[in-house]
Design a binder for these strands. Structure first.
Length: 345
DNA sequence: AAGATGTGCAACCGCCCATCT
DNA sequence: GAGATGGGCGGTTGCACATCT
């Protein structure tokens, strides 16, 4: 049984708001506030609108100090950085950008930033493909194929091949076409920055530092972590930055192509995963967008705490939209715990 | 000039969760 | 404790406008 509708839909006006309706709503709220009850509000003012619709109109349009359009590059970067760390939690991202609404940011992301990013990726892919082709011709190897020719994306980890007879938990989607995962990977690779210099920020000598190389976004990320995690996570960034240099360094050999990107972060993440694969399989799920089979015992440790992580999902792309929050928290927990573990030695 | 296609954005939908009764 | 209610949120849709052919 579904729940009762919040308003009588037959007697409720839909569609664009007229200036008169805007004026009514605005003047009432400015004088009396919302009264803590959006559902009753339209009746009080004599508006034939759903309470939710009023709330949305107020929050997204009528509220004072709302900015529309004209996103700055700094805002772009903040959005991208936060998208890496928390995913599509638009309300939280909006909270970090004064005057911006979640709806605005969501729209901006969907219509512009995402395309901008994908365009950037295509450009890089073309360059890589050209280089690979050139190298291949040089070597003259018979078995050479350009990365895309055999479905291997040059940027991402090699995805485990689907096992024969394994049930497909979701309508199969080409992992490379999973926009959400794709974009997050790409953002991570780009160091969380979308605009500005194409050259990645240098991470030389830096140690487990979040890819954001500008203090503002660093601070924002910290805030985000604080928002989501228990008090213990608050010291995450400090703990990590206090670690001795090279604590996490490795050459990245044998790691995913992602780890060879400009940002150090994926490499450090890989370090942790390699140093403690059992505990950190979930991170692979999250960051690589695929489940990871536990070798040997046939179980998947991530399954113990994930709602979607059945055995079938272990070989197919995970529905990141469903598990993202959990995995993000898991990532933070694991990173913190790992960092603490390493500092204690 | 006109139709087709693309883009941006406001608004709606439906779900989840916290609170109330 | 269970159901009802409202707030909040992310995803999606629909429409107006812009651009292309």
């Amino acid at each position: 049984m579904g729940r009762a509708p919040c308003c009588d839909k037959a007697n409720v006006k839909k569609g664009p708001w007229s200036p008169e309706e805007d004026a009514k709503l605005k003047s009432y709220i400015e004088k009396h506030g919302t009264g803590g009850n959006w559902i009753a509000l339209p009746q009080k003012i004599g508006l034939k609108r759903c309470g939710k619709s009023c709330r949305l109109r107020w929050l997204n349009y009528l509220r004072p100090n709302i900015k529309h359009g004209g996103f700055s590059e700094e805002e772009d970067n903040i959005i991208c950085s936060l998208y890496i760390s928390i995913g599509s939690r638009w309300s939280i991202i909006a909270a970090q950008l004064p005057g911006r609404t979640d709806n605005d940011i969501k729209n901006y992301w969907n219509t512009r930033l995402k395309k901008k990013l994908l365009g950037k990726q295509r450009k890089e892919q073309q360059v890589r493909r050209a280089c690979a082709l050139k190298q291949g011709l040089k070597k003259g190897k018979e078995d050479f194929t350009a990365p895309d020719a055999n479905n291997q994306n040059p940027y991402w980890p090699e995805l485990p091949a689907p096992m024969e007879g394994m049930a497909v938990p979701y309508p199969y989607q080409d992992p490379r076409l999973n926009d959400h995962a794709l974009i997050r990977k790409l953002l991570i690779k780009l160091g969380g920055r979308l605009s500005g210099n194409d050259q990645p920020p240098s991470m030389e000598g830096m140690n487990l530092q979040w890819p954001l190389d500008i203090s503002t976004t660093e601070r924002l990320y910290e805030n985000t972590i604080n928002m989501f995690s228990s008090a213990s996570i608050n010291s995450f960034t400090d703990t990590c930055s206090s670690l001795p240099n090279n604590q996490f360094s490795r050459n990245g050999a044998g790691l995913s192509p992602m780890s060879q990107g400009p940002s150090n972060f994926p490499m450090e993440l890989s370090d942790m995963i390699y140093s403690n694969p059992h505990r950190l399989e979930g991170l692979l799920d999250c960051y690589y967008g695929v489940g990871v089979m536990n070798e040997g015992n046939g179980t998947n440790s991530a399954d113990e705490s994930t709602s979607w992580g059945n055995i079938g999902s272990s070989v197919y792309p995970s529905p990141l939209s469903n598990c993202e929050g959990f995995h993000q928290e898991m990532l933070q927990e694991c990173l913190l715990s790992e960092a603490k573990h390493m500092t204690s030695h």
